[in-house]
Amino acid sequence: MRWWWWIPLLLFAGFLGVAAYQLTQPKNDLVPSAMVGKPLPEFDLRAAAEGMPGASTADFHDGKPRLLNIWASWCLPCIAEAPQLDQLKQEGAEIVGIAIRDRPEDVAAFLARHGNPYTHVGADDLSQVQLAIGSSGVPETFVIDGEGVIRYQHIGDIRAEHVPILLEKLREAGE
């Protein structure tokens, strides 16, 4: 037997090793947006609830960094993140909401029950803004700088440990 006859077997063993290692790794289900670093797409949404202004790209061009929260009244993790959004508001963050596929009465009921951290809430009935911004679910939160450029994306509900990260990203976006 020549030594190099073992090469295919070693390659195969190496392949098995890589496959076995990958099987033990946790699955990553997150779909990051490729829009981070790019300007916010153009949109102009009607108000999602009575008595609140709607949301448009123009709201993000006054030099002040903001959070853009993609959520919905039918989304359960959005209830879980409501206290954290409220805390972000207390710490001085301005939050613009976009409600996905939602009815005005449901939005109003959600805000009455879980608090209203938003300055604006737009209604995205056909998920058009959600698709344009590269968001693949609710909730997601984007940091938008004062020139309307997307600077950071947080996927999933905001937990207590994410609040300082988002505040830091907002501060960086304001520099």
């Binding site: 289900d29 779909v31 056909l126 998920s127 058009q128 959600q130 698709l131 693949s136 679910g137």
Partner: peptide, 21 residues
């Protein structure tokens, strides 16, 4: 994007419906 192993033609997820639209 919300079901991940289906095409938007195969999925009944509301977001897939919006993508088909």
């Amino acid at each position: 994007l919300t079901c991940q192993s289906q095409s938007i033609a195969d999925s009944d997820a509301p977001m897939a419906g919006d993508m088909r639209h």
